[in-house]
Design a protein around this nucleic acid. Sequence first.
DNA 1: ATACTCGGACCCTCAATCCC
DNA 2: GGATTGAGGGTCCGAGTATA
Length: 307
Amino acid sequence: MADSNADNEEHNSQSPAEPPQTSMTMHPLPYSGVPMHMYPFPPGLISPQPPRTKRRQVKNACTNCQKACKKCDDARPCLRCVKYGIAEECTDSQRKERQKGVKRGPYKKRDGKANNVEQQLDVSVQPAVSVPAAALAAGAAPPGIPYMHPLGYSPFFGQYPALTAGKPGEAPTYAFPQYYFAPIPMHPQVAGQEGEQVAYPPPNLIPATFVTPYAQQPYAGAPMPYMVPMPPAGPRSDGQPQIPVVGPPMPYAYPPPYAKPQSREGGSEIQQVQQVQQMVDPNRRDPRMDAYGRMPEGIASGHGKPA
DNA sequence: ATACTCGGACCCTCAATCCC
DNA sequence: GGATTGAGGGTCCGAGTATA
């Protein structure tokens, strides 16, 4: 299928020169509850019907997770089995062979192109970093926008995998999505009846270009973090020009991109699991990671049922 | 409060089919 | 031959229930 599944390439991203292994946890924050493509936009910027995020699945859940209908991961033993102390029973489940020779009826006619609107709306998968010429020609912002979302470092840095690792001394290319200015819907367009959802005007998104292609790493070969915090206000330490913020200052701080789960006794669930995991096998490495310890797109995503 | 169960929504894979 | 479709079969969310 044309669907370029990141998982399809996961196994061939290992370079011959294996980079230094890190001691960071190799699990993709499965309990984060923040889907991979759910951007930490402030409440005012969230449209009433945010695009549903796609749920990522492992290729093959272990027998235990499969039985429990619970989320598994690609590592063996998986987090859940480690957590429940059944790591030695963590084995891949057997998948049935797909049946062949199933006849299919005639397909519905193709109507040329652009088969779905969803694809056009899904900015999360657009690898483009360039600004469409039409948008540039149209000017920075359409009239009537009350104020613009401030733009700084992308909050997505490190969240997306490298498309190309980059030769020594070269910057890797990342598959992060375009970063958008978005006008805040100031007033509901339609007043909702009692018990009805209030409708907001559709967001008018203006694609913008990234100023920096990737977050600076503290040292060569350092693993990319999942996300980096927003930069502090004021001049940038790297000498690059400060990105001007249009409109009033943000009255709130960004929440941490991945909020820790509710802590239980002895720390959060994920911390407990990680502690066990490190005791079991300190060198345990998630097989999906690329040569630089980064996870492919979408991993750690996912809770995606419509409300 | 936490663990367990499981219905069913959602997702991925890939053979069948379409079309250039 | 490459692109597209869509069903088979898988994963796992989340609500309900059980247990400590």
